[in-house]
Simulated scan of single mutants.
Amino acid sequence: MSKDSKTPKDTHYANLRRAHRDQKRERGELPPASPFRKKPAGDWKAPPQPTDTVWLYGIHTIKATVANPARKILRLMVTQNALARLELGETDGLPFPVEIVAPHDIDKLVGPDAIHQGALVEARPLPVRKLDSLKDKPLILVLDQVTDPHNVGAILRSAVAFDAGALVTTERHSPTESGVMAKSASGALELIPYIQITNLADALEELHQLGFQTIGLDSEGPEPLEQTFSGSKIALVLGAEGKGLRQKTRATCKALARLDMPGAIKSLNVSNAAAIALYAARSHIKA
């Protein structure tokens, strides 16, 4: 049967299937579209966005965003199904406008591959935080040019799980706030300071002045991580996958340490390495 010879019944069932897929995408049950899938005519292009706003999406992300008093929300775009899942109560009482939309309205903003689950907020970036605000924190993470927002989001989630005081990154070669990073963090972006600095070596020296022992994770470190800890304030420094810590960073850290792995694989994804290092550091701090 040709496309032009479809009956009203065929069209009806096609629409039902399409609606069913949309509902599954809202619930996050469908994976992102394959990058090799044929795109429809007029491939999606990101629309212009003001530089002082971010688009954040996903049910867990939106719940955390709304609950964060430091976050200024400009509007919420949401489907009826997602609005029920957000459990926000009466929308008339919210301090931002709520727009009821269809899933494809959000697709137009963030792309058809984003698993937005039918909810998106337009918001201001979080307030800038300084390193001296960390002086009373016993444990922080520092990233040396980790560029993948999925990895950084996963690290944020682990950092919150182990009660780290902040995640510090460089302004260059590091992701800024985005829907991808926030979705990967599953709400953690709203729960921990994400501090971006200009010069990492200078930032490490400032952390030394604040009393932190900076420990760089390095596969060739002279001692296992758990034997390297000293003092009550720890800053774990991790480098990008592949190239690891830069030479200047290695030279500035107070110590270098390795994660001993007895198995056949001797390297880990940076987000997994961060989780293990956080667990070890938290055990030291509690001891």
Rank of each mutant, 00 (worst) to 15 (best):
C253P: 04
I140V: 15
T170P: 07
C253L: 06
P149C: 06
S158N: 10
D107L: 04
L16S: 02
E90P: 06
A277F: 04
L139P: 11
S34I: 11
Q145C: 10
Y57A: 05
D113P: 01
R250S: 02
T249C: 07
V78H: 02
G231I: 07
R75H: 12
K45R: 15
V168I: 13
Q247I: 06
L207E: 06
T170E: 10
M261V: 12
L126Q: 10
H12F: 15
Y194E: 07
Q49V: 01
L131C: 09
L139N: 09
D113S: 15
L76Q: 14
N269Q: 00
S178E: 07
T61N: 11
I106L: 10
Y194V: 10
E241S: 04
A287F: 01
A64V: 13
E177S: 05
R250W: 00
G244V: 03
G231P: 01
K266G: 11
S5C: 03
D260K: 04
T170C: 12
P127L: 09
L204R: 01
H20Q: 11
L156N: 05
N269A: 03
S219G: 10
F96I: 09
A275Y: 02
G28W: 07
H60A: 15
A274T: 06
D202P: 00
V54Y: 09
R157A: 03
G216R: 06
L278E: 12
K3G: 05
A264G: 01
L268S: 01
V180C: 00
E205V: 04
G42E: 04
D105E: 15
P103K: 03
A201P: 02
P175M: 06
N68T: 03
E29C: 00
K243L: 12
H208P: 01
E99Y: 04
H60Q: 14
A275P: 00
K137E: 15
E29Q: 09
P32G: 05
S283Y: 01
L74F: 02
Q196C: 08
F229D: 04
D218W: 08
S5Y: 11
P138I: 14
R71T: 14
I59C: 01
G118R: 10
R75W: 05
K266W: 00
L204H: 00
T79A: 04
A273F: 07
P8G: 03
F162D: 02
A102Q: 15
R17A: 13
S158E: 08
D43V: 13
T7W: 02
A161F: 13
R157V: 09
G179S: 05
A119Y: 09
P47E: 08
P138V: 14
E99A: 03
H12W: 15
A84D: 14
R17M: 09
R71M: 14
A82N: 13
V146L: 09
T79M: 08
A201V: 15
A185D: 08
R258C: 03
Y57I: 07
I59V: 13
S2D: 12
T51H: 12
C253E: 05
A102T: 12
V101A: 14
A33T: 12
P127W: 12
L30D: 00
T61E: 15
N151C: 12
G58E: 07
E29F: 01
A166N: 04
G42S: 13
H116Y: 11
A84Y: 06
V180H: 04
A280I: 03
T170G: 15
P112I: 09
V128C: 04
T7P: 00
S2P: 00
A114W: 06
T170A: 10
A64L: 12
E177M: 13
R250N: 00
